[in-house]
């Protein structure tokens, strides 16, 4: 695997300025994404995982939201400094996104062919038949049966799994370098979800694109990802290779998360449950944001947010933010 970062996010802060105060949705996120790599971003709702994705896409909701600090380097170019017009050239071509609900991400009054062709036009300066051929080829790539006739269908004539495949076809139309899948399979049935994940893996093998998987499902992470960033209250609690996260979790939140997921292959009498609720983002606790729910918390945790600690040597790129780790 080539070790060149296509995307480097440094100290990204996306805040929302609301009447009731500043909501720190993303508050200092760092990660690197190499070409052909799959990064999983996991966390609960409100942990900032989707806002990180929208920040990369330059689609932070306006006017309340704003990237206040940090840089997003795409092949060395800082996306934060780019204008919307410049971002428009990158979005949909170099960086693409698949959203959770295919019924709302497709336009119900246009045929799917029309919508695929619309995207193809952006990257191909051709017309008519060639565009249609390319669209059929794309639908074929995402394994839609009989794409020649399916191209005339409207979204409502397709099942959820097929609609999500069409969204996938639109996403790969411009041969992107980065594909962001935001809970892309959450609304699909189990067997369909499995098919779709396999399809994404195959597309990645063919095109060499990097994928960012945003999910709350540890199963998706275990199946798909090379690296995992665990987010909690706008910050990355821990980032490491997927096996290190599963075998050797260092942050107490990651550790608890691993223990609280039931397993289809074994019987468990009682699951471990993390007590309490995630904090409100406009009223974060001082010190470590996880401290109120942490079983290891001591006095220092409630005063100051911990530094990033390197686990092991540099080469395995495993970091976590916890005082427990830097104290001993």
């Amino acid at each position: 695997m080539a070790q060149t970062p296509v995307l480097q996010v440094n100290n990204l802060k996306t805040h929302f300025f609301t009447r009731s105060g500043v909501v720190k949705a993303v508050d200092g996120v760092d990660f690197t994404l190499n070409a052909g790599e799959t990064l999983g971003i996991v966390g609960e709702s409100g942990s900032g995982k989707s806002m990180t994705a929208l920040s990369i896409m330059g689609l932070v909701p306006q006017p309340a939201g704003k990237i206040v600090e940090g840089e997003i380097l795409f092949n060395g170019d800082d996306l934060v400094k780019k204008t919307q017009a410049e971002l428009q050239q990158i979005r949909g071509r170099d960086i693409c996104m698949i959203l959770q609900d295919p019924m709302t991400s497709l336009n119900p009054v246009f045929s799917v062919g029309n919508q695929v062709i619309e995207t193809v036009k952006q990257s191909l300066a051709q017309t008519g038949e060639t565009l249609k051929e390319r669209a059929i080829e794309l639908l074929h790539k995402v394994k839609i049966a009989a794409p020649e006739s399916r191209i005339e269908n409207f979204p409502h004539q397709m099942s959820g799994g097929m609609r999500q495949r069409v969204v996938g076809a639109i996403a790969i139309a411009g041969s992107p370098q980065i594909l962001i899948a935001d809970e892309a399979t959450t609304s699909l049935d189990a067997t369909i979800q499995y098919q779709y994940l396999e399809l994404l893996k195959e597309l990645q093998r063919d095109t060499g694109m990097a994928i960012i998987f945003i999910t709350h499902d540890m199963g998706v992470v275990a199946k798909m990802c090379d690296r995992v960033a665990v987010m909690y209250a706008g910050k990355v609690a821990e980032i490491a290779d997927v096996r290190d996260i599963f075998n050797n979790p260092q942050h107490p939140y990651t550790e608890a998360l691993m223990k609280s997921v039931p397993n289809v292959e074994e019987d468990v009498e009682m699951l471990y449950a993390i007590e309490g609720q995630p904090p409100a983002l406009d009223n974060l606790p001082a010190g470590c944001t996880f401290a109120p729910r942490c079983q290891y918390a001591f006095d220092k945790c409630e005063v100051q947010f911990p530094d990033i600690v390197q686990i092991g040597d540099d080469s395995n790129r495993h970091t976590a933010t916890c005082w427990k780790l830097s104290e001993n």
């Binding site: 189990a190 067997t191 979800q193 499995y194 499902d217 540890m218 199963g219 998706v220 275990a222 199946k223 990802c225 997927v242 096996r243 599963f246 997921v261 397993n263 289809v264 292959e265």
Partner: peptide, 10 residues
């Protein structure tokens, strides 16, 4: 089709 609990139990 239910997702694995560990990356090694694919």
């Amino acid at each position: 089709a239910s997702l694995p609990a560990h990356p090694d139990s694919q």
